[in-house]
Design a protein around this nucleic acid. Structure first.
Lengths: 199, 199
DNA sequence: TTAAATGCTATACAAATGTATAGTAATAAG
DNA sequence: CTTATTACTATACATTTGTATAGCATTTAA
C-alpha cells in the first residue's frame, strides 16, 4: 500500500471521523467544505489519489466512499503501523506512524502495541519475509531466543535476542547474515508476538 | 419501541443487509427497487414508519439513513477455521469447522471465506510454515502460480497451482517434496489471500 | 530536465435523489 | 362509524451530488 502525503492523510482522517460521527460517508462537497476547499474538484482529486493508493473505494453514486482496511473495523483494537523510522526519535513518535491497523483479537489475549513492516530477508530462517507485518508488544528487554524489534543506527530491525556474558547478541535467522553484538539492551523496542502477511 | 409490521421488518432487514454489503446506506429508490415497489413513495412511507417507531433516523440528505441501537452494532466478519477435513464432505461442512475467527478487514478489500491451519512443511519455500493460519477465498479454479487450497485424498492441502497441457500440477514450494499431478481441477477449494501466524 | 503527481480555484451540467402532490384500497384503532 | 395506519401506483420538481472542463502553481519522480 503506497504511502500517503500529509494532506491525503488529513482527508482520509476526516472521512473516517465523518463516518464514525454520522454513520454514513460524506459527499465530495462535504469533504471539500470541512477542509476549506472552494471547489469540489480539490476533494475529488484527493479521493482519486486515496483510491489509487488503495485506501478507499468508491463508485459514482452519492456517498459511496468505503474505507478499505483500517476504518471499516469500528470498535476493534487499532495499532500504529510504523513506516520508516526517523533517526533520533522514539520509535512510537508520530512521525514514524504510517497508518493505523485494525487487528483481530490476539488468540492468547496479549496486548499488541504496534505493528512494523519487515524490510529485508535477514529473518527468512524463521519464515519472516520482506513485506510481512509483525505485531509487537512494547518491552525493553526479552528472553533468550525471543524475536525482538531493536533500533540499530536509527533503523528498526528484527532479530533473535540472546543475552551473552557482557553483551546482547542480535542474531539473524538467515545464515547469510552475521550476528550483531550490542552492549546495551535499551535499544530493544519490543517482542514479536504474531505476523500478518498479505499475498 | 413500538412493534413493526411484517412488511416493515422486511424493509428494515433489507436496509441492514445493504449497509453490511455496501458499507453505506441505500437510497430510497434502491430500497423501493429491492422490494419491487414502482414508486419511491412506497419505500419512503416505510422509512417514515420506521423512523416514527424509533428503528432508524434520517435526514433529508442522500443516503442518510442510520440504524439506531443494536441494529447498528454490526459484528466484525467471522470466518470458519477448518480443522481436520472429514473425507467425502464438502470442505465447508459443519463437521470440519473447528471454531470461528474474527478477522481484520482485508487491506485489499477482498472477501475471506474461510481459514485453514497449515499442517506440514511442504510450503516452506514460500515461508508458510506448520501451524500458520491461511485466509482463503473460496473458488473452484485459479491462475498459474496462485497458492491454492485443494482436497487430496480427503485432506486439505496447500500448494502452488499450475495448469499443464492436460492436467493440473500442484507444486510444493519445499524442494524436498514432489509435485502432484491431478486430472481435474474440481478439487480446488480456494485461493490463499493472506496469512496469520501466532508466535 | 522533463514528465507526473500534488493541490488547488472556478464554473457548468447531467444524473441521482429526497420530497411533494394526487390518488386507490384494505385493515386497525378509537 | 369514522379516522388513522398500512401499503401501495404514478408523476413531477427542486436540490444534491458526482463528474467534466479549464486553468494555475508547486513538488516529486524518472
Amino acid at each position: 500500500m503506497k504511502r500517503l502525503t500529509t494532506r491525503q492523510k488529513e482527508v482520509l482522517e476526516s472521512i473516517h471521523k465523518f463516518i464514525s460521527d454520522h454513520g454514513y460517508p460524506p459527499t465530495i462537497r462535504e469533504i471539500a467544505k470541512s477542509h476549506g476547499f472552494s471547489s469540489p474538484r480539490a476533494a475529488s482529486d484527493h479521493l482519486k489519489a486515496l483510491q489509487r493508493k488503495g485506501y478507499i473505494s468508491k463508485s459514482s453514486l452519492a456517498r459511496s466512499i468505503r474505507l478499505t482496511g483500517k476504518a471499516s473495523g469500528e470498535g476493534m483494537p487499532k495499532v500504529p503501523l510504523l513506516g520508516r523510522i526517523a533517526a533520533g526519535l522514539p520509535i512510537l513518535a508520530e512521525q514514524n506512524i504510517e497508518e493505523y491497523l485494525v487487528l483481530p483479537p490476539d488468540p492468547k489475549n496479549r496486548k499488541i502495541d504496534f505493528a512494523l513492516r519487515v524490510s529485508g530477508d535477514s529473518m527468512t530462517g524463521d519464515h519472516i519475509k520482506d513485506g510481512d507485518i509483525i505485531l509487537v508488544k512494547a518491552q525493553q528487554t526479552a528472553d533468550n531466543g525471543d524475536i525482538v524489534v531493536a533500533l540499530l543506527d536509527g533503523q528498526a530491525t528484527v532479530k533473535r535476542f540472546y543475552r551473552r556474558q557482557d553483551a546482547i547478541e542480535l542474531k539473524p535467522s538467515n545464515p547469510s547474515y552475521e550476528p550483531i553484538e550490542v552492549k546495551e539492551d535499551i535499544r530493544i523496542q519490543g517482542k514479536v508476538l504474531s505476523l500478518y502477511r498479505v499475498l
